Simulated scan of single mutants.
Amino acid sequence: MASRLLFQSRLSAPVAAGVFAAGYTLFPKTTVHAEAPEGSYSRKPIYDEFESLPAPPAQKPLPTPEASEPSKVSSPTPTDRLAVQIGKTRVFLHARVAAAEDKINQLMDNVLDLESSFTSTVASLAPSKESGEKLMPGAVYVLVAAMAGSIVSRNRNIVLRATVPLAVGVGAGWVVLPVTMRNVSDLLWQYEKRFPAIADGHIRTREGIEKAWTMARVHTQLAANTVDEKIGASREAVEGWVRKGK
């Protein structure tokens, strides 16, 4: 009897559980949700607006350059070193080319200035039109006079052979081309001023020549006066003799 009751109780437990499950399934009294029940967190539809994002955390102030650790300086690459060397070479070549160009320009300026000075100096030696002096016939006369002086002194010593043609030519130039010789003398004097010793010697020589020329003219005049007096006295004596003879 006891065993029968135990068997019936074991048999009735699964049946009761099945009946309860079938009845709960077919006639539910509460709605079963997949989400957690209300109270744990609020359920929201998927189409609701997004909530405002939380404010970002406050950034920490950047450390000052004094507080920060010194940055490591990276060594230049071979390309950087090559670029620096190329730049230095270009600057060096540019400086040398510019210096050479300046030297060439300066040389050309000096040559042009020298040419202009030479042409202006030669032009200044020519006589003016108002003087009526012509270079071509006068230059020929001066050359002929110098050649005559060379012929006269050809059998003399070397000093006379060197000085006589020059002196005769210069003298002929002062006689035939006085304006041109004056211009040449003034030009030489401008160059002689650069050398005081030569200028002083020239002044002394010129003063000596002028003094000798003055003395020569005075003595010539005295000699001419003496001759005139002697001639006049002789003529008077002759005339007296002639009158007495009559």
Rank of each mutant, 00 (worst) to 15 (best):
A36F: 12
K29Q: 15
T180N: 08
E101L: 03
V175D: 11
A126D: 07
L53R: 13
E101D: 07
V176A: 14
E66V: 08
A233Y: 02
V73Q: 12
F92E: 00
S124L: 03
D80Q: 15
S117V: 05
V19E: 04
S116I: 10
R182P: 05
S150R: 00
M181T: 13
V140T: 10
R194S: 12
S120Q: 10
W189N: 14
V159A: 14
V111L: 15
A21E: 08
E130P: 04
F27S: 10
L11C: 05
S124P: 01
L11D: 11
L5N: 06
W241P: 00
P70E: 05
M136C: 01
T89W: 04
L187C: 07
H94L: 09
A162G: 06
S234W: 02
K60N: 11
E133P: 00
S234Y: 01
R90S: 00
L143R: 00
P54Q: 04
V15Y: 02
G138H: 05
G39V: 04
K211R: 10
H33K: 08
A99V: 01
P45W: 07
K134E: 13
E35M: 10
Q59F: 12
A224N: 11
A22I: 03
V159Q: 05
R81N: 03
A224H: 01
L62F: 14
Q190V: 09
G87F: 03
A2N: 07
Q59M: 10
N225T: 14
G39I: 04
S131P: 07
S71G: 14
P56G: 09
S42Q: 06
R243M: 06
V168L: 01
S120D: 09
I86A: 15
E236I: 06
R156G: 13
P45C: 06
K29D: 12
P28F: 03
V19C: 08
D113G: 13
E133R: 03
M108S: 08
K88N: 03
V227L: 07
D200I: 13
P196L: 09
T30N: 15
A100F: 06
T89E: 00
G169E: 05
D186E: 14
S12A: 13
Q221F: 07
P14D: 10
P178E: 06
T79H: 14
D228M: 08
A172Q: 03
L82T: 09
V144E: 12
A123N: 15
R235N: 12
S12E: 07
R4E: 07
D200P: 01
G23R: 12
G232K: 04
A197F: 13
V91F: 02
T31L: 13
V140M: 11
I198S: 11
R156M: 15
I209R: 03
T180P: 00
G173Q: 09
T214D: 07
P78G: 02
E192T: 06
E35I: 02
L62I: 08
